[in-house]
Structures are given as C-alpha cells and as structure tokens.
Design a binder for these strands. Structure first.
Lengths: 230, 230
DNA sequence: AATTTTTGTCATGAATTTGTCACACTATCA
DNA sequence: TGATAGTGTGACAAATTCATGACAAAAATT
C-alpha cells in the first residue's frame, strides 16, 4: 500500500535523507523546500501524509499546519511534525493545531518509518455519525438524509453508504477494490465493475441537486469525490 | 449541547492540552490529577463523560473504571481511556471493565474530539416523563394518553412505548434492533420483523388523526419519525 | 371462567434494490 | 487513423426488504 508523502523541509541534506527513507519504505516522496511551495504542490496532488518541519523560512510549520487543518480540502491529511531536539513545548503546540504525531531531530530512520506506518494505518477511513457537508451537499447519517440545494436526495442503502464514504474521504482517489472493501464490506463476491454501476446510480441521484459532477472518474485508478471540475 | 467532562490525568501538560481541547469543542472540563481526587469531585458533580488516563499514581485508571462501573450512580457515565502507545493488551482490558472507547497517546485533537462527540452522541437516547408535542401530536407519559387534532388515540402498551421513544428521538433513524433494545427492553427473544408489525399497528392507530405518515420507513436502515414527507 | 385485548410469528405478495451482462462510448497511444 | 483498454449506460433477472392480513398464544379484564 504505497502512499504519497509530502516532505516540507528547507534543509536539503535532511530532505534528501527523508526522501530516501520514504522511498525505501515503499512510498513516494514529494519534496517542498518551503510552506509556500508545499501549498502550490498540493493544488496538483493531495498527499496521503505530510512530514512537516517545525522551523521553516517564510511561513513556518505551525502556521502551515493550522492552515491545512482549517481547510476542508486538506484537513484530513495526517501530519507528522519534525521538531528540533528538546523542546517539550512543541509537543503541546503541535498536537494543538492538529498534528498527528511528531518526531524529534535527530531521528533514526527506523523510528521515522515506524511513525509513518502507524499514522498511515491509523488513517483508516473513518465513517463517523457526524453530519458531513461538502460543496453544498449535506449528509446526515443519524437521520439518513442527504440534502443538496434544498432538495432531498433519495438514495438506496448502498448508494448512501457509498456517498457517505466518499464524503468522509473527499478529494482522495479510491480504487474499485478499496470501495468494495470499505462500502460493501468483507463478503465480497462482487465484480469490480459493479462499482461503476453504483457510481452511475449515485451520480444520477445527485443530479437532481446539480451535483452530477461531484464524483469524478480517474481513468486507470478509480473514483474521487471532488469540488473541482477538472 | 454542552457537557461536563471529567479529565483524570496526572501529567499537567497533557491535562492542559485536554482541557483546552474540550473547551474548544464547546464542553466544560473538570480536572483531576488522580483517581482519588476524581472520586471526590464526583460527589459534587456527576460528569457526562470521563477521560481517564490508564496510568495514574495511586489508584490507576483501570481500577477507577471498574469501581465506577460497579456503582449504580456512576455506571452509566461513558469512559474514554487514554493509553500509552502500542499496548494492544490495554484495549481488551479496558473494554472489559466497561470503557466505551480508548485513545492512544499521542493523540490528535481532532481524533479526540471525534471520539468525545461520538461517545456523547451514543449516549442512550432518553425518554423522560415530560409531555412531548410533535407535529400536532401530543403525548403525555404521566397520563398515558395521546392526542392528535382533538382526537384521542388509543394505543396498546407496546405501541405507546414505541411512539414515546420515537417522539423523544424525532428525525432520527432507528434500526430494528435499536428499537427492540430501547422499547422492548434488554432480554428479548423477539424477531426483528416483529417491529414491522408494531409499526403498522402504530401507523394504523395514528391514522385517525391524520398522522399516518409520521413514521417513515427508511429502506435498509430502519424507521424514523419525521414531519417531512420524503 | 369467560371474554377481550395485546402480542409475537408467519406466509404472501408487492416494491425496491442489487449484481451482472451486452453494448456504446471515450481516452490514449502506436 | 485504428487499435485497445477503460468507462458509461440501459436492461433484466435474482435477491432483498417491507407491508399486510391472519392466527394462535399470552395477558389482562370482566
């Protein structure tokens, strides 16, 4: 299970080390020398995890974390903070803004990888009972209602679960087999292509509130719920 | 919907962090540095939720949890355990003594808040003895009467409890097994489908005041009392 | 004890949902 | 331009889910 990991670190040597590590762990590093560059890169690809240096030129790590966590598009991305040695204070502040873990420099590659693995595992798409809103569409698990632009959208059980999953994990591409795992559950003797059909039904239902383009096809990969139109 | 949350944690920094989080989530933290202090505080105020550190000086978290769960006064208070990372064993023991959830340190504020929210919401929907009115229908638990549009509605005991529960938790979808739990009680050998029949009888009775559509079927999920028609 | 009410279960049929297929369509690349 | 693999779509039969009437056991009432 490979993941895209964004490395935000201004010191080239450390960044190189991090990237190497990530590659060896079977993941794919994306490098950014500053918070600004990181934000730029994220317009293209939303990473699965961010390694974020505490001290950065320009916008520092703390600010970036806060910014990311306040944006619906990025707030679900786990963040691991890289902090200088010794500052106990960091821990509190870091967790405060929503970092998921932290590593103090100097770190051992093994420790870093362990943390990455832990965080990625913990990232298990979580479907809570909280109402979710995305792009004018509102889904409430407790009342089992979906409303978009004042229109009630009628969904079958599977479509509801599918949409619930998508809204809980927006902006992320899910393969068909991932969807089968998460939405259909374990008892899957179901064909991959069945997902396509349900996607169509869901899109169809969503069209009555003008949300037909909310779920996008990523050719060769799967599907994604996104506000963007590309 | 604010709640009192008792935080039992001996490390001041973590306690501070927890308290901050709780406040930001719109709740009210009550702090205790030890299990003994916690017990003391609970003589004054019974909290709605307890965040309980696993390791504590003196009486540890596990013992406290066990103690609370064995006391009629406190056994219904949900408990979220805070455990050190990695101990898989904790989970079993913790849930064994009746903890409702657990969070491993270090935790992200978002995760913690999500759990708090979930546990608080999971709190058993309660049926009070206060008269309830909904959509022109009035139910009075003390006189055991139901009136809708000047018409007295005659209900059997089970139908009455069923309606009482629905009116106490309007708009919310309840599965058949939830209804069996809450309306029929704990020790039932009753089939799921039996609920359907009672729903029909209730609907039937409600139809004399024109409220036949008040209880709606949510296919694949359960039933819901709602004023809306869709 | 007799009667009435309440309750749980079942069988049936209606309505909806679901998985799959065949075929149309589209992007991509040689 | 064709070839090819990936995706959209309509149709359809099977499976699931629900509403309903009937019925006998249990409980409450007379």
């Amino acid at each position: 299970m490979s993941a895209n990991i964004l490395v935000v670190e201004d010191e080239p040597a450390i960044q190189e080390l991090l990237a190497l590590n990530i590659t060896q762990a079977g993941h794919h590093p994306i490098r950014a020398l500053s918070a600004e560059i990181a934000l730029d890169l994220m317009r293209e690809t939303i990473p699965d995890l961010i390694l974020l240096d505490w001290m950065l030129p320009g916008m520092n790590g703390l600010e970036l974390a806060r910014k990311l966590k306040s944006d619906a598009l990025t707030k679900n991305i786990p963040i691991i903070m890289l902090t200088a040695r010794g500052e106990e204070y960091d821990k509190v502040r870091g967790l405060e803004v929503g970092a998921d873990d932290y590593v103090t420099k100097p770190f051992s590659p093994r420790e870093l990888n362990a943390r990455i693995k832990a965080v990625l595992r913990r990232r298990a798409p979580q479907m809570t009972d909280d109402p979710i809103e995305f792009n004018g569409l509102r889904l409430d698990p407790t009342t089992h209602r979906v409303i978009g632009n004042q229109k009630t959208i009628d969904l079958g059980p599977t479509e509801f679960r599918l949409l619930h999953f998508f809204m809980s994990n927006a902006e992320r591409v899910h393969t068909r087999s991932q969807l089968l795992d998460k939405v259909w559950g374990d008892r899957v003797f179901v064909e991959d292509r069945t997902v396509d059909v349900h996607i169509r039904r869901l899109r169809n239902a969503l069209s009555i509130s003008g949300h037909e383009n909310l779920i996008q096809t990523v050719r060769g990969a799967g599907y994604r719920l996104s506000a963007q139109n590309s």
